[in-house]
């Protein structure tokens, strides 16, 4: 297996939806074991980028490499590394949480013993105890988000692609999620996350990219971004200044 210090490498990525171009020659490298945040205004191309890296949609041009392997050449193998959470989470309404997790187990060929242990661990971590008999369609938005996060974590993928992962989560859910994510990063997992919650990004992400109109405007640590914007107070202020949205 080709080794690479980068978990995710994206080069020359463009994407057209019909005549509308949403990504413009985008390049990005995410090192293994880092938590990488992507921020930007609505419609900047964050979700499209994550969908392409997850293998849900195809780029018009460009290449995506995951753990040194080409996504387009070996999609099935490469997808075993990835855990993806969509921006608008939807699951099979008529399956219970337990049934859905079992389906995921089968889809990703997780051994039974490992699965049982992990389900117990993450159900507890995400406060899903007591909901395993509930149908996914009857869960609240926050609980559905927790169930889908649990479905990702039970697989323990090497790369987490998370699109607005805090949507619907309550403060304790966010705290739990943050803790789990940091633990995973410590043991070498990589996180690429798109979000609007700059406070979280500033506290948790090792590196941050600001994306606007399908292009990466700037990339670096929180400190580097603030310096580039010439502000010291917060990432939020730097973000607004870099995007020219400062009042």
């Amino acid at each position: 297996m080709p080794s690479s210090r980068y978990a995710i490498e994206v080069s020359g990525l463009t994407k057209f939806y019909g005549k509308n171009q949403v990504l413009w020659d985008l390049n990005l490298q995410v090192e293994q074991g880092t938590i990488f945040g992507i921020v930007g205004p609505n419609g900047a191309g964050k979700t499209t980028l994550l969908k392409i890296v997850a293998g849900i949609i195809r780029p018009t041009t460009g290449k995506v490499t995951i753990m040194g392997r080409s996504l387009s050449a070996e999609p099935e193998d490469v997808k075993t590394f990835i855990g993806y959470l969509p921006e608008k989470p939807r699951a099979y309404d008529v399956l219970t949480v337990k049934e859905f997790l079992e389906f995921i187990k089968e889809l990703y060929s997780i051994p039974d013993a490992v699965f049982i242990e992990r389900v117990e661990e993450y159900s507890k971590a995400f406060g899903l105890g007591g909901y395993d008999l509930s149908f996914m369609g009857s869960l609240s938005k926050g609980l559905l988000q927790r169930a889908l996060l649990a479905a990702i974590f039970v697989r323990e993928p090497r790369i987490y692609l998370l699109d607005e992962p805090f949507s619907g989560l309550d403060p304790s859910g966010i705290w739990q999620f943050r803790r789990t994510l940091q633990e995973k990063a410590k043991v070498g997992a990589t996180v690429l996350m798109a979000t609007h919650i700059l406070d979280f990004v500033e506290k948790v992400c090792d590196r941050i990219a600001i994306i606007d109109q399908g292009k990466i405007l700037i990339e670096g640590t929180s400190q580097q971004l603030r310096e580039a914007a010439g502000v010291q107070s917060s990432l939020e202020e730097a973000y607004l200044k870099l995007l020219g949205e400062e009042s």
């Binding site: 849900i56 999609p75 997808k79 969509p86 939807r90 099979y92 889809l107």
Partner: peptide, 12 residues
Amino acid sequence: EKSWILKVAPVS
């Protein structure tokens, strides 16, 4: 709306 589940899975 649920097709993402199958599209991200390691299944052709």
